[in-house]
Design a protein around this nucleic acid. Sequence first.
DNA 1: TACTTTAACTTAACACGTTAACAATTTGGG
DNA 2: CCCAAATTGTTAACGTGTTAAGTTAAAGTA
Lengths: 149, 149
Amino acid sequence: MADKYLRKFKRSLPMSLLRAREAVMKNFIPSLQEHKLSAQQWRVIRALQDENGLDISKLSVRCHLMMPSLSRIIKNLESRSLIDRRANDRDQRVSVIFLTKSGKQLYDLVAPKSVERYEDITEKFGYGKMELLYELLEELVEKVDEADE
Amino acid sequence: MADKYLRKFKRSLPMSLLRAREAVMKNFIPSLQEHKLSAQQWRVIRALQDENGLDISKLSVRCHLMMPSLSRIIKNLESRSLIDRRANDRDQRVSVIFLTKSGKQLYDLVAPKSVERYEDITEKFGYGKMELLYELLEELVEKVDEADE
DNA sequence: TACTTTAACTTAACACGTTAACAATTTGGG
DNA sequence: CCCAAATTGTTAACGTGTTAAGTTAAAGTA
């Protein structure tokens, strides 16, 4: 208990996670930029490709986006005719979001490049280490969330 | 090569890293908020505590902040008298940044709580796993940055 | 010395992260 | 049925991420 000082950034967990995420994202961003898509907009498109016709609250959870951010993103994608919103008949408060035809086309255009980038990263880093990393990250989240105080 | 589809978010590397970072940050943010500090502002203060009198470019590298963000952050911290800027005599273009007395006092107030939070996380997750995670993240960055294309 | 190039920021513009306040429904009693 | 409370978003405001353009000072070059 003698040395209660803060580690420098090199050994800061948030910083290490940040650097790793940045390094990984650098691989995906260029092909998204070619289509004027942000990483967040792409997440929404991906989620809708997985399951078309999600309401905004569900999208928010699946994409890890806060409602205000998502609200803006949907407005943007809607203005570009990549998605479509319809009111739910049973509950007029909820908007259900659908990928349009051009939204699906855009997905089909971008997805293969992302797959390539992912395979490239997996190859460079090693499949076993990738799996180990996933497990560690998952366990970290579990343990840290477990008892918040 | 048969199944060239994108994993769902649960198994997306950027998402896993994002979730982990969010879970970890949740532990540190409350004590920062008590002092109206963002995580980024705190990084700047920490860097200056490590080495007082850094120019903005060096701060940018150490804190992993882009120059425009840092420019705004410095303006903010300066307006709150937590830091102080002086022109470099040899080169009038560079501003050298110093922690003021109240900046240092704020550091002394916040740092112990961050140390506590870090120890708590380490204990919950396990020291060995923490070290392993650091190594994996570092290696991931190396390998991924290695050959960008 | 005059002129171009480089370096060190700063500003602008747009998107997202985050908290708080608002608006429109829907639901749950009484 | 009516009103309070909860639900589903949207808007506002401020700080950060990111790219591009603008400023000022230093360095390099003819």
